[in-house]
């Protein structure tokens, strides 16, 4: 990718972060850390990687994005709004009565949301089902499934991992948001996940580890995943929860709370500075 393109995508990620802060403050509840940490991944998915059409959401040849860690849906809503699925102002209705933007994503509430999620651990199986069906029909789309890392505590995930490898579902790519936090604390204190890469490998997956804030690395990893024809790929994306807002980065307490009005002001200011930095870095 050209430097100019990377800059565009990093700026998109910044826009997404701004919207996340904005919508969560308005909602008065919801999850901040995970969505901020996944903003770079979502900018890349919606603006570079995925085949999709915001004006034709049911397009049969679209790639499917399964968000298994449904609590992080603000990042998806923000990316969708910026991609043109619905007006950006609608983000302000998040979690409110009557909104299409339910607290956890509802398949029937908002066009472009592929499946209802929130209860953890079931996205990978649904993604595997879709990938299996696509292959039966010799369709060429790809299925991306994002999971949290704490979510990998769920036994379901490993049942699905076994299934996908057993059936060589190379049209399925799992993306693990490896941010090292969950609700009760650091993942390695709550329930040890390491050797995580070794686990996926031993389950029969091709594994790529990336810096989840490096868009070039992510795009390269996806291209590699698509080139591999005999097994599914797991991209372990190392991310920083709360990324972009220094005072909340890596703080597990920010898993499930929104910013206050005062914090919002401070955070948005920091994101404006970050935007300036992105522009400066790429114009050298």
């Amino acid at each position: 990718m050209t430097d100019e393109r990377i800059k565009e995508l990093e700026l998109k990620a910044n826009d997404i972060r701004v919207s996340i802060i904005d919508m969560l403050e308005d909602a008065g509840s919801g999850h901040t850390a995970g969505p901020l940490g996944m903003s770079d991944l979502f900018a890349a998915l919606y603006f570079e990687i995925m085949q999709h059409d915001p004006k034709n959401v049911d397009w049969a040849e679209r790639d499917r994005l399964i968000l298994s860690n449904g609590h992080t849906v603000p990042v998806r809503y923000a990316a969708m709004a910026h991609a043109g699925y619905f007006p950006i102002e609608e983000l302000k209705t998040l979690r409110k009565f009557g909104s299409r933007l339910q607290g956890h994503p509802e398949r029937h509430a908002l066009p472009g949301i592929e499946h209802t999620s929130g209860p953890l651990g079931t996205g990978l199986g649904q993604a595997a089902g879709m990938a299996f069906g696509m292959r039966l029909d010799t369709n060429k789309q790809h299925v991306y499934c994002i999971t949290g890392d704490g979510e990998l505590d769920c036994g379901n995930i490993w049942e699905s991992a076994m299934f996908a490898a057993h059936h060589n579902l190379s049209n399925l790519t799992a993306i693990v948001d490896r941010n090292n936090i969950q609700i009760n604390g650091a993942t390695e204190n709550v329930m040890k996940l390491e050797d995580l890469s070794g686990k996926w490998t031993s389950f029969g997956w091709h594994v790529i580890e990336i810096d989840g804030h490096n868009i070039q690395q992510f795009v390269d990893a996806v291209n590699q995943a698509k080139a591999i024809q005999n097994k599914p790929t797991c991209i372990i994306a190392h991310t920083i929860p709360g990324k972009g807002i220094k005072e909340i980065e890596n703080e597990f307490e920010w898993h499930g709370k929104p910013p206050t009005a005062e914090e919002e002001k401070r955070f948005l200011k920091e994101l404006r500075t970050l935007r300036g930095k992105i522009e400066a870095t790429h114009s050298q």
Binding site: K96, G103, G118
Partner: peptide, 8 residues
């Protein structure tokens, strides 16, 4: 439960 929605 409120804003978390139907799943919860």
């Amino acid at each position: 439960v409120g804003p978390d929605g139907a799943t919860h």
